[in-house]
Nucleic acid binder design. Structure first.
Length: 208
DNA sequence: ACATTAATTGTGT
DNA sequence: ACACAATTAATGT
């Protein structure tokens, strides 16, 4: 665990802090498609991503969900940190997109480190900014882009995160993540296929 | 190997 | 949005 920490964070954190993280943090390895936390659950800590990717969702009272953004290696979910500071119930859902490794840090420790380590404060601040930028990006896309463009963004982002050209997903699932309906997604995908941007197969989309 | 069923995708209104 | 057809995968016999 120390080794992995140094690899990713050696340049950012002091030696001492790295050892503290290793001491109080718990390493978790999860398979693909594993729900790390659901809406309404008690927040126990903040994740530091070591490898893999995690999808962060928001869901409204009707059970409609929407993909907000991905967490990737070196990321942390600092938005949730600030969101959950007071109300300790999760407002988001986190599901792994890939098999992932991460370190959970108890909320308690974070407050202590904020006082003690400038590098930790910087990290929080920087991470917060990155997360916020991503959020604004998806917000812009929601507000100003048509669904077709949004779908294309979704596909290219998924391709980037997975590092593969073949995306294994059903139209129904895409519809859920973009908060649309299956039929609409099917039609748009067909359109994209005809324009040569993708190829459709069962349970799979090939990016070109 | 075959039949049955469920899941996924395509299309017209 | 809804209904239905067509295609493919999964399962049991």
């Amino acid at each position: 665990m120390i080794l992995e920490l140094k690899q990713l964070f050696g340049a950012i954190f002091e030696e001492e802090l790295i050892h503290e993280i290793a001491k109080v943090g718990t390493l978790r390895e999860v398979p693909e498609d594993y729900m790390l936390i659901d809406i309404g659950e008690q927040i126990k800590g903040i994740p530091l991503m070591i490898s893999g990717a995690i999808k962060i969702y928001r869901e409204n009272a009707n059970g409609d969900e929407l993909l907000l953004y991905y967490l990737e290696e070196g990321d942390s979910c600092t938005l949730t940190y600030t969101l959950e500071m007071n109300a300790s119930k999760s407002k988001i859902r986190a599901i792994s997109e890939l098999p992932s490794k991460l370190i959970m840090i108890p909320l308690k420790q974070m407050k202590v480190w904020e006082q003690q380590y400038p590098s930790w404060r910087n990290f929080l601040f920087r991470s917060y900014q990155i997360r916020m930028d991503e959020l604004i990006e998806t917000l812009d896309s929601l507000a100003f882009d048509g669904l077709e463009k949004r779908l294309m963004n979704y596909l290219t982002e998924k391709k980037r995160v997975n590092g593969k050209d073949e995306l294994q997903i059903t139209h129904q699932n895409i519809a859920l993540e973009l908060h649309s309906s299956r039929v609409v997604i099917s039609r748009l995908l067909k359109k994209l296929e005809l324009s040569g941007k993708i190829q459709l197969r069962r349970n799979e989309i090939l990016m070109v």
